[in-house]
Simulated assay, not measured.
Amino acid sequence: MADITDIKSIVYTEKTLGLQENGVVVIQTSPRVSKNSLKEMLKEYFGITPLKVNSLRTHAKVKRFRGRAGVRDALKKFYVTLPEGVSLDKQEA
């Protein structure tokens, strides 16, 4: 079962900032997170029920740097569509 520590970051790039204007947030997680577990995490931690969740898997990739082999991490990106007027700011109770 995935938990909140599996969320790596929220992606802030030029493309994702354009998506955020339309209510879509891009979240990077570890590969073991599923759509359903991400929905549960968002509901439990942020109190938000997303309208739609799309996922994109990035496989680990071997790259060379100065003749030495290294491995990029495997990640999953989720495109989460939030209800209108909702953000991912942690609400204090």
Rank of each mutant, 00 (worst) to 15 (best):
G47T: 04
N36A: 14
A2T: 12
E14L: 01
E14P: 04
L75C: 09
V26Y: 03
R57S: 13
Y12Q: 07
R57A: 09
L75R: 11
E84C: 10
T13L: 00
G47N: 01
F65V: 13
Q91K: 15
V71Y: 12
V33I: 07
K76Q: 06
V25P: 05
L17H: 04
G18W: 02
T49V: 14
M41I: 15
D3S: 10
T58L: 13
T5P: 04
L56W: 09
K52I: 02
R57C: 07
L42D: 02
D73Q: 15
D6L: 02
T16I: 01
M41F: 04
V11Y: 02
A69Y: 10
E14Y: 06
R32F: 09
R64V: 11
D3P: 04
L19D: 10
P31N: 04
R68F: 09
I7S: 02
Y45W: 13
N54F: 05
R72C: 12
V24A: 05
K15E: 09
P31D: 00
K90Q: 12
K52A: 10
Y79W: 07
E40S: 14
V62K: 15
S34H: 04
A2M: 06
K15A: 06
S87M: 08
T16H: 01
S55F: 05
T5H: 12
A93P: 15
K52P: 01
Q91N: 10
Q91H: 11
K61W: 05
S55R: 07
G67Y: 08
S9W: 05
G85Y: 06
N54A: 10
K52Y: 09
V33H: 00
V26D: 00
V25M: 04
E44H: 10
P50Q: 00
Q91A: 15
L19P: 06
K43F: 10
D6E: 05
L19C: 03
A60H: 03
I27C: 03
H59Q: 13
G70K: 13
L56I: 08
S30N: 14
I27E: 02
A69G: 12
P50C: 05
L19V: 03
R57W: 08
T81S: 12
T29F: 02
S34P: 06
D6V: 03
T16S: 09
V71Q: 13
H59K: 13
I27A: 00
R57E: 10
G85W: 05
F46E: 00
R66C: 10
V71D: 08
T5W: 08
A2D: 08
S55H: 08
G18Y: 02
I7L: 09
Y45F: 15
Q91F: 09
I10Q: 06
S87D: 15
K63N: 07
K63F: 10
E92I: 14
R72H: 13
Q28N: 12
K63I: 12
D73A: 15
L19I: 04
L51Q: 11
G70F: 13
D89R: 11
G47Q: 02
E21Q: 09
V86Y: 05
V24S: 05
M1Q: 14
Y12F: 11
K39G: 07
L75Q: 10
Y45C: 08
N54M: 07
Y45S: 11
T58K: 14
F46V: 02
T58W: 11
N22L: 09
P50F: 00
I10N: 04
S9T: 12
P31Y: 03
A2K: 06
K77W: 06
G47M: 03
Q91R: 15
